[in-house]
Simulated assay, not measured.
Amino acid sequence: MDKMVAGSLKAKNCVILQCKICHTVLGDSLQFCGNSSTLNLLMCLRVTENVELDPTTLIGCEGPLSECLYKSLYCSFCRANVGIVPLSTTELLSHLRGLYCLDKSALHCYKLQSNSEVEAAAVNLQPQSLTQHIGELKRQLVVAHCRLMAAVKKLDELAGEESGLGISILDLEHGREPEVYYLGCEV
């Protein structure tokens, strides 16, 4: 399963989000879930342990964050402010609540495909749609199911060889009366 997940990642889409000052890794594109061009933010579901959440709750007094409650995010190494976590927002910014919103101007992005570092504002990250996530999950479930059925079949073969009986494990698991065969004859 791990090989499938790793194989489905495309290097051209993978980006590491780093602190602009000290280059500490703050997150990656796998946790990216959107961006806000009006606030110049990258929204992430998770960040690394190198990001510290300030315990102080702040209130926005002016600009787009006016009337919003939020906590600041800091790089744990250089203490640079790298973003916010909105707690209470206006209806217009409700989609940001509870997400790690990293400030693009405080970030560098390391692109895995080209092994290059670029400004976060220059990177065009697009989150996968829910349909893509569900499609990939379905594909992984079908593959896992096929492998499981092949393993059950092999177990049936081995159990039948050892006992001389042809009892199906699937019959036993589903509460059906097993069909017992002895040397190929029904008993």
Rank of each mutant, 00 (worst) to 15 (best):
M1W: 10
K3Y: 09
A6G: 09
G7I: 04
G7S: 05
G7Y: 01
S8W: 08
L9K: 14
K10T: 03
N13F: 07
C14H: 13
V15A: 11
I16V: 15
L17V: 12
K20D: 07
I21K: 14
C22L: 03
H23K: 13
H23Y: 10
T24H: 05
L26H: 04
L26R: 04
S29A: 02
L30N: 11
Q31F: 12
F32G: 04
C33A: 03
N35D: 14
S36F: 01
T38C: 05
N40Y: 06
L41W: 07
L42G: 11
C44S: 10
L45M: 11
T48C: 01
L53W: 02
P55I: 04
C61L: 14
E62L: 08
P64L: 09
L65N: 08
C68E: 01
C68W: 01
Y70Q: 01
S72T: 10
Y74P: 03
C75G: 01
C78I: 02
R79L: 15
A80I: 07
N81K: 12
V85W: 07
L87A: 02
T90C: 05
L92W: 11
L93T: 02
L93P: 03
S94R: 12
R97S: 07
L99E: 00
Y100N: 12
C101Q: 02
L102R: 06
D103K: 10
D103Q: 11
K104V: 05
S105D: 12
A106K: 00
C109Y: 01
Y110K: 12
Y110S: 08
K111L: 15
K111W: 03
L112M: 12
S114D: 13
N115L: 14
N115P: 02
E117I: 15
E117Y: 07
E119I: 13
E119W: 09
A120L: 00
L125S: 09
Q126Y: 03
P127N: 02
L130N: 10
K138T: 13
Q140T: 13
Q140D: 08
L141D: 06
L141G: 04
V142Y: 01
V143Y: 00
C146V: 11
L148A: 12
L148F: 08
A150F: 00
A150T: 11
A151Y: 08
V152A: 03
K153I: 14
L155E: 12
D156T: 07
E157C: 05
E157G: 11
L165W: 02
S168F: 00
S168K: 06
D171P: 05
E173T: 06
H174E: 12
G175H: 05
E179R: 15
E179G: 05
Y182A: 04
L183S: 11
